[in-house]
Amino acid sequence: MEALDLTKRPKSKLALKPEWADVCFTCGTCASGCPVTGVDGWDPRKAVRAALLGLEQELVDSRWPWICTICGRCEYMCPQGVNLMALIRYARTLRERDKVPGVLHKGVAMCLERGNNLGIPETDYLFLLADLSKEMEEGTVETEHGEEYPPYPGFYCPVDKEGANIIVTINSKEPMGEPEDMMFWWRIFYAAKESWTVPKQNWEGVLWGLFTGDDDALKEQCRRIIENARKVGAKTILYPE
């Protein structure tokens, strides 16, 4: 292995700010507390060293920034205040988009194009909400664990309701695979007599741009959530993610 000449250290693409790497004292507190220290030979301290010493491409090309869950324990305990989460997330940003592991980037692209990560069409979504509402009102809900629920007279799921107090985002896994789980909140809203609504379009609450290091996508997804709230005049966004 060739020794690094630190006097000719190239400018790092990853250590963008001093607090991302330069300020590190290499104490190893981060690595000691990290549940994925040692996986593929990496740990948070090594990631910081790689960023500082011009070896960032090795980190970017490795699986490690994606096995790390960016839980933030390392940063919370770091005595030097190294911004480890920003650093690791940016290592994900530097990954070419077609090399982002698994479905995450596909979900981001789908969400930007069709308003939710799974590409559920608007008509299916609206019909599902109406159908579930009817089941809940009539008390004919079938649940996974066999619970029985009474009828909820007058219940329906408001969509883009003008002047609603609370607008709620939706996790696309629920309409797709666990629709009855949406009723947990619906039953609470019914009892509280809340004035609430869900968005008609762009209702996704799971913003994968956060995970893929895609700031432009994330910004657009957040903009849509706020736009939906403004459109109906909702004072509060409930974001159950």
Binding site: V36, V39, W66, I67, T69, I70, C71, P101, L104, F211
Partner: peptide
């Protein structure tokens, strides 16, 4: 504040590194 992650954060639930997520 010092709690442990469930192991599926940061997109790991949807990632292909399944065994790593379970080990975590």
């Amino acid at each position: 504040m010092n709690g442990l992650c469930c192991g599926a954060g940061g997109g790991a639930w949807a990632s292909p590194y399944v065994q790593e997520r379970i080990d975590y």
